[in-house]
Amino acid sequence: MIALGCDHGGYELMQEVKKHLEERGLEYKDFGCTGPESVDYPVYGKKVAQAIVDGECEKGILICGTGIGISITANKFKGIRAALCTDCFTAEATRLHNDANILAMGGRVVGPGLALKIVDTFLDTPFSGDERHIRRINMIED
């Protein structure tokens, strides 16, 4: 299950992401927001992070205007590794090396065509499991 959350700056792009996930047959839980009206991104970043910490969802996707604020919010939770990605290379690298469990994107930064490729790369790339990466992740968690 994939946890989804966005603010008004990411609302339109999140609608595209939801359609894409449905086309792929992937289950998700939408934690909001529910429209393009101004809202506070920390509310949704916290909901998605908590769903992953609680084991309700395995991974998450967060979108705000830039992806920065919402990823900062999520990264305040122990065990969360939210990565702001603007291209497929960073999405692949953060899964391979950091075992990131939340993808963050900027709805005002990344267009829908690229965003969906980033989503696919993030969701389809497994963690490498290399000892050096495990060691580094453990250092982050300490």
Results as ranks from 00 to 15, higher is better:
Glu12Gln: 14
Gly69Thr: 08
Ala83Val: 13
Phe31His: 14
Ile70Val: 13
Val48Arg: 01
Phe31Ser: 03
Met139Ser: 09
Ala93Asn: 08
Ala93Tyr: 08
Val53Ala: 05
Ile80Phe: 03
Gly79His: 08
Ile70Trp: 01
Ile137Tyr: 05
Gln15Met: 11
Ser38Leu: 07
Arg132Met: 13
Arg132Glu: 13
Thr66Gln: 04
Ile61Lys: 01
Ile80Cys: 02
Asn98Met: 09
Leu114His: 07
Glu56Cys: 13
Ser128Val: 05
Glu92Ser: 12
Ser38Glu: 11
Tyr28Asp: 01
Gly113Gln: 10
Gly60Thr: 08
Cys6Met: 11
Glu141Asn: 15
Leu84Met: 13
Ser128Arg: 07
Tyr28Asn: 02
Leu123Ile: 01
Lys78Ser: 15
Thr94Trp: 02
Cys33Trp: 06
Gly5Arg: 09
Arg24Gly: 12
Gln15Tyr: 03
Leu96Gly: 07
Asp87Met: 07
Gly69Tyr: 04
Leu103Gln: 01
Arg136Lys: 13
Pro126Leu: 03
Thr90Glu: 07
Thr90Pro: 11
Tyr11Phe: 15
Thr86Asn: 15
Leu62Asn: 01
Lys46Cys: 14
Lys78Asn: 14
Ala93Ser: 13
Val109Arg: 02
His8Asp: 00
Lys18Ser: 02
Gly79Arg: 09
Gly111Val: 07
Thr66Ser: 14
Gly35Asn: 12
Lys117Gln: 15
Leu62Pro: 00
Gly45Thr: 08
Leu26Cys: 10
His133Lys: 11
Leu4Glu: 00
Glu16Ile: 05
Ser71Ala: 13
Gly129Phe: 04
Gly55Cys: 07
Asp54His: 02
Ala115Pro: 12
Cys64Arg: 03
Gly129Glu: 04
Gly67Asp: 00
Lys117Leu: 15
Pro42Met: 12
Ala49Asn: 11
Leu123Lys: 01
Ser128Lys: 06
His133Tyr: 14
Glu12Cys: 09
Gly45Ile: 08
Asp142Leu: 12
Ala93Ile: 11
Leu62Glu: 00
Ala83Glu: 08
Asp124Tyr: 04
Met1Val: 15
Ile72Thr: 09
Ile134Pro: 00
His133Val: 08
Cys85Asn: 09
Gly5Asn: 14
Gly45Leu: 11
Met14Asn: 10
Ala74Trp: 07
Leu26Ala: 12
Arg135Ala: 10
Phe77Asp: 10
Cys6Asp: 14
Leu13Met: 13
Phe122Ala: 03
Ala3Asn: 02
Val17Ala: 12
Asn138Tyr: 09
Val119Lys: 01
Ile61Gln: 01
Gly69Ile: 12
Thr121Leu: 04
Gly107Thr: 04
Asp142Thr: 12
Gly10Ser: 05
Ala3Phe: 02
Phe122Cys: 04
Asp87Gln: 06
Ala91Cys: 07
Lys59Met: 06
Glu131His: 11
Ile72Pro: 05
Met14Gln: 13
Gln15Glu: 13
Met14Ala: 05
Cys33Phe: 08
Ile80Pro: 02
Lys18Tyr: 04
Tyr11Pro: 01
Lys46Tyr: 09
Ala3Tyr: 01
Cys85Ile: 03
Ile68Gln: 14
Ile61Phe: 02
Glu92Val: 08
Val119Tyr: 02
Thr73Val: 12
Leu62Phe: 05
Lys59Arg: 15
Leu4Gln: 00
Asp120Ile: 15
Thr66Lys: 06
Cys33Thr: 15
Lys76Thr: 13
Ile118Ala: 02
Ile63His: 02
Ile102Gly: 01
Met105Ile: 10
Ala104Cys: 13
Arg132Gln: 15
Leu96Lys: 14
Ile63Ala: 02
